[in-house]
Amino acid sequence: MRRSPAFEIFRYAAIALALALTLLPILWMVSMAFKPIPEWSATGADLTWIPRAPTLDNFRFVFGQSTSDLIVALERTAWRPILASLLSAVFGTVIAMVCGTAAAYGLSRFGSGKNLPLALIQLRLFPPMAVMIPVMIMWAFLGLIDTWWGLALIYGIVTLPFAFWLMKTFFDEMPREIEEAALVEGCSRFRVFMKITLPVMRAPLASSALLVFILNWSDYLIALLLTTKNWVTIPVYMASLSSSMTGQLYGAKAALGLLAAIPPVILGIAIQKHLVRGLTFGALKQ
């Protein structure tokens, strides 16, 4: 199909606008991360895109090395929140993917629990805030407040519907003949699932897991309510980066934000091939 030049110009302009809207804040964060305090503080001089005196002070600061300009006593460094985020997001993803995949497979292949999909999706029908207070009470009762495993558990529960629905769609699309071919050869159901189904489904699994991980990694609200001191996550820790002297520590926040963006980006690049295949899944030619 040939499009008119006017349409092509419009198309590229639209793409450029969309990219600008999404990328400019990220670029600004990158810029901020490398600026010294006079350049990012509220009282600072005129703002520039390129730092005039680039520095790594912001990064040093969040990891506990105080610098001459930032004479703020940090209660704790970013090490522990990074660990908390990693542990809770990774294990939350594992919980959601293991349970979600198993449930999706059972439903897709054997049709048991016909109401399960809707029961699970209704977990997403109300705002998380509506259930967070009861969850807080339960977690307090179970002694799970301010623990990374308590956080991982609630992350797994909250993202389970996503994992389930994504995997159910993928399992529905997977040709059953592939499994039947292995069953005819005398393979047990469980072995078929482990040795045939999961390997064939690795692309959809990877893309679902990445999506779930990003959801968990970027959570703020749940972590804010369920952690207090020992296991606050990166977003919660980031919110606390302020001082009475300088107000919000934008440079430090930007530095930490930049670091926090690294895991999803690396994972995304690593499974990029699978991501595309996961979205256009089809294990065999029809």
Partner: peptide, 30 residues
């Protein structure tokens, strides 16, 4: 009698090849 115990070979219309394996691994599976 489950299908694995019937001693039948089955060729599917859409092949149902184990796409994550090589040709050799597919042949050696049974």
């Amino acid at each position: 009698v489950p299908m694995g115990k019937r001693g039948v070979g089955f060729v599917f219309q859409n092949y149902a090849i184990f796409t994550h394996m090589t040709v050799r691994q597919n042949l050696a599976y049974g």
